[in-house]
Simulated assay, not measured.
Amino acid sequence: MIRTGVLLAAGHGSRLRGSAPYKPLCPVAGRPLIDHALAGMAEAGLTRAVVVLGYGAGAIAEHLARRHWPLFVEVVFTPDPDRPNGVSVLAAAPALKGEQAVLAMCDHLVAPALYARLASTGACDGVTLGIDRRIGHPWVDPDDVTGVETRGAAIVAIGKRLGSADCYDTGVFAIGPALFAALGSFGAPSLTDGVRVLAAEGRAGVVDCSDLDWIDVDDPAALAKAEAWQLARAA
C-alpha cells in the first residue's frame, strides 16, 4: 500500500484567473482545490503529501503553512512553471528517495477512493494510470482531456485528441523510479512523454476507475459542474 502522494500545483491556471489568482486556491463549494486534494489523500489512507509548487508558490506555501493537515505536507518547487508538467514531476523525485507514490493533479477534483485504488494497485515495474471508460461523460471536456488507448490492462497510446482512445486519463497515477528515469531522458518532458516511453516498453498499465467520480477543474464551466457535485455530495 502506497502511503505517499505527490500533488502537482505548479501551473498558471489562467482560465480560472477570474475565480482565484492561483488555481490551487480556487474555491469549490467553499474550500480551495488544494484543500480538497490533501483531505482526499488523507481519507484514502495516505500519510504524506509532497506538493510541487511553481506559479504563485509564495501565496500557496503560506496557505499550506497556516493550516493543520490530516497528513504530513512538504513543499518542493519546480525550476520553471512555464515548462511542461513532467519537469514538475521530476522536482518531486529527491523527496521520494526511490519509493512509489500516488501522483495527482491539484486541479483534478476526485473521489478519495480513486487515490486509494491507485495506492493499493501500485506502479508495478513502471507506471499505473487510473482510467475512466465512460466516453462522452458530460463532466469531461473532449477538447482538453487526455485520451488513452488500451489493450487489456496495458496502455497502447496516450494523448490529447486521440482518435483511437477507449478511455480517459483521470490524472491519478501510481508512480515509481521507472517513470522518473523515463522523464529524465528528455530535456523538458511532459508527464505524457514519460508514460509513452514506458508504454513502448510494456510497462504502463491501467486500473479501471469508471465507477468513481472525478473532474478536471480547468475553466469556469468545469468549476460550475464541480461546485454542483460537491454541494450534492455534502447534502
Rank of each mutant, 00 (worst) to 15 (best):
M1H: 10
M1R: 04
L7W: 12
L8K: 09
A9P: 09
G11N: 12
R15Q: 13
R15A: 15
S19M: 10
A20D: 01
P27D: 03
P27N: 14
V28W: 03
A29L: 15
G30A: 01
G30M: 05
R31F: 07
I34T: 08
D35A: 07
D35S: 10
A39L: 02
A39V: 06
G40M: 11
G40V: 02
G40Q: 04
M41I: 07
E43I: 12
E43K: 08
R48T: 05
V52R: 00
L53P: 07
G54P: 11
G56A: 11
A57V: 04
A57Y: 10
A59P: 01
A59D: 11
I60T: 08
E62M: 09
E62D: 08
E62F: 06
R67S: 11
P70I: 10
P70L: 08
P70V: 10
F72I: 13
V73N: 11
E74N: 06
E74C: 09
E74Y: 01
V76R: 13
V76G: 12
F77H: 15
T78C: 06
P84G: 09
G86M: 12
V87K: 05
S88W: 02
A91Q: 09
A91C: 07
A92S: 06
A92E: 05
A93T: 00
P94Y: 05
L96R: 05
M105I: 14
C106Q: 04
C106P: 00
C106S: 10
A111P: 03
A111G: 06
L114D: 00
L114W: 03
A116Y: 08
A116I: 10
R117H: 05
A119V: 06
S120D: 13
S120K: 08
T121L: 11
L129M: 15
I131R: 07
R134C: 07
R134E: 04
H137N: 09
D144T: 11
D144R: 13
D144H: 13
G147L: 00
R151D: 15
A153E: 14
I155Y: 03
V156T: 01
A157V: 03
A157S: 00
I158W: 02
R161K: 14
D169T: 04
D169P: 06
G171M: 09
G171R: 00
V172H: 10
A178N: 02
L179C: 02
F180W: 07
A182L: 10
L183A: 08
G184E: 10
G184C: 02
S185W: 05
F186D: 09
G187W: 09
P189H: 05
T192C: 10
T192Q: 12
G194V: 11
V195Q: 04
V195N: 03
L198Y: 08
A200D: 15
E201G: 03
A204E: 01
G205S: 14
V206E: 06
C209A: 08
S210M: 06
L212G: 03
W214D: 00
V217T: 06
D218G: 07
D218I: 15
D219T: 08
A221H: 12
A221E: 14
A222I: 05
L223P: 00
A224S: 11
A228F: 09
Q230N: 09
Q230M: 12
Q230T: 15
L231T: 12
L231M: 14
A234D: 13
